[in-house]
Amino acid sequence: MRRKISLYGLTFSLPLLIWQILFFVFPLLFLIALSFWTVKNFTMRPDFNMVNWTTIYGRGVFWQAYGTTFALAAAASVLTSVLAFPAAYAIAFKLSDAARRWAVFLMVIPFFTSYLVRVYSWQIFLSDNGIINVILGWVGLGPFQMLNTVGATIIGYLTLSFPLVVLLQLFSLAFLDRTLIEAAHNLRCGRVRTVFAVVIPSARVGLVIAALFCFILSFGDFVSPVYLGGGEPTTLSILITDTTKSGQQWPRAAVIALTMIGTLMLVAFAAVKFAYKGKTK
């Protein structure tokens, strides 16, 4: 049956529609148009030329950066989800109401400070002369190189998305139908098996969406790869800055940005499809 859009519904959905058109559709259309422009003597000129697409897609370094960025973001999503789940589970099922409120508050606090500042503070811990190596030195270990490594980049991604992933997982677990867990226990299902057979499948949508957010944030992040990873390996966000840094090649940067947007859309659609697979209204 075809649904009729009422004036009441339109009134409330209109601001969202206008917002999306103004701040997503228009910039996206402009970005698409920009990717066909050309640059001469540092000045961008409106054009319809495929040269930016062929140049970027023809470069090995682009595909290398693409693979690296995708792999790092995927690894960060899996790692963050795995590390965040016990925290979210404990907050949802093991803490009292008061303690749960405090835990949520503590998860929100990191957002009060700048992400850049938090990443810089990691340098104090991870550098060769940093806190971790000093402590390891007391027991005769190290120093180990931790800063300017892929591991440090992943730590940065965790810093960025861990609190958010915990909160998203928590909301998903908090609204879980607890009678399902009781039923599992009544049927003599052990605690661990209950988690894997009942809790995780029931909270799948929230868990997948949380992982998706981690992927999105990590995939486009510039701060951690530069300030913790030392700029290597090259990620797509670094490649964008490299491209704009010399010769005002914003059109080529637009090609990279559009590829990133397209990738994120595909991943998001795939994740949502997986999350709701087998679900009925």
Binding site: Y120, Q123, S127, D128, N129, L147, V226, Y227, E232
Partner: peptide
């Protein structure tokens, strides 16, 4: 031989902390 590629701020901090 290269340990990293740094911008203005990163150059300062990586030299300052002996990284």
């Amino acid at each position: 031989q290269i340990g990293g590629f740094f911008d203005y701020g990163g150059t300062f901090s990586s030299l300052n902390d002996g990284q």
